[in-house]
Computed example of a mutant assay.
Amino acid sequence: MTRPADIYLRFLQLTEAIRGLPSLPSLDPLEERILALVARTTQEKERLSVRDMMAKDELGSPATIHGRLKSMREKGWIMLTDTEDTRRKQIALTQAALLHFDKLSRCMTQATKG
Score class of each variant (00 low, 15 high):
Thr15Trp: 00
Arg47Ala: 08
Lys113Met: 14
Leu99Gln: 03
Thr83Ser: 09
Thr94Tyr: 03
Leu24Ala: 11
Lys45Asn: 06
Gln90Ala: 15
Ser61Tyr: 09
Asp85Asn: 15
Ala111Thr: 07
Ala17Val: 10
Met72Tyr: 13
Thr2Phe: 14
Gln13Val: 00
Cys107Asp: 10
Glu16Ala: 02
Asp82Leu: 12
Gln90Met: 15
Trp77Lys: 06
Ala39Glu: 09
Thr112Ile: 13
Ala96Cys: 05
Arg10Glu: 15
Val50Pro: 00
Arg73Ala: 04
Ile18Glu: 07
Leu24Met: 13
His66Glu: 14
Leu37Met: 13
Ile34Ser: 01
Met79Tyr: 07
Asp6Val: 00
Met108Val: 02
Arg33Ser: 07
Gly60Arg: 12
Asp85His: 15
Ile7Ser: 09
Lys56Gly: 00
Arg73Ile: 03
Trp77Ser: 08
Pro22Lys: 08
Thr64Cys: 08
Leu27Pro: 00
Lys103Ala: 11
Lys45Ala: 12
Leu14Ile: 00
Lys113Thr: 15
Leu93Val: 13
Leu93Thr: 11
Ser23Cys: 05
Arg51Gln: 09
Arg33Cys: 10
Gly76Ser: 13
Phe101Ser: 11
Pro62Ala: 03
Arg73Pro: 02
Ala39Gln: 07
Ala63Asp: 04
Asp102Phe: 06
Pro62Ser: 06
Arg33Tyr: 11
Ser26Leu: 15
Met108Asn: 06
Ile78Cys: 04
Gly76Arg: 09
Glu44Leu: 04
Phe11Ala: 08
Leu59Gly: 04
Trp77Tyr: 14
Leu59Ser: 07
Phe11Met: 11
Thr109Lys: 12
Tyr8Lys: 10
Ala96Thr: 04
Met108Asp: 01
Lys103Pro: 01
Thr83Met: 15
Arg47Asp: 15
Leu35Met: 13
Glu84Tyr: 05
Ser49Gln: 07
Gly114His: 03
Gly114Trp: 00
Pro25Val: 05
Ile34Arg: 01
Val50Asn: 01
Glu44Ser: 02
Leu48Phe: 11
Ile91Gln: 04
Glu16Lys: 01
Arg106Met: 12
Ile18His: 06
Met108Phe: 08
Leu24Lys: 03
Thr2Ile: 08
Leu30Val: 10
Val38Glu: 07
Ser26Phe: 08
Phe11His: 14
Phe101Trp: 08
Gly60Phe: 09
Asp85Ile: 11
Leu104Ile: 06
